[in-house]
């Protein structure tokens, strides 16, 4: 069973990218995000992070945001899971 953070993250990406239901299910750990999807510009990523904070009830410090965490779905998921566990 996929864990809750994974589901929430897929749902947020569905909302931000305007995907059809189920489309985000195809995202794997290596799926590219920031720098790979043209619609995911800095404003969209900033919105995504804010939404992540609201829905996961976490606070993301600016210095925690790095290229690695935003580059792939797996990187973002690992970051979100670590934040929730903290």
């Amino acid at each position: 069973m996929p864990d809750e953070t994974d589901l929430l993250l897929r749902r947020i990406l569905t909302d931000v990218l305007g995907l059809k239901p189920g489309q985000a299910d195809a995202f794997g750990a290596e799926t590219g995000l920031f720098g790979h999807l043209p619609e995911l510009d800095s404003m969209a990523v900033a919105g995504l992070l804010t939404e992540l904070e609201d829905r996961l009830d976490i606070v993301i410090d600016d210095d925690e945001i790095d290229g690695e965490m935003l580059e792939t779905y797996g990187g973002l998921l690992a970051f979100a899971e670590a934040k929730r566990a903290a």
């Binding site: 800095s42 804010t50 600016d62």
Partner: peptide
Amino acid sequence: RQMVRARMLS
């Protein structure tokens, strides 16, 4: 906050 974050990201 979100606009500042976007600026920092870019």
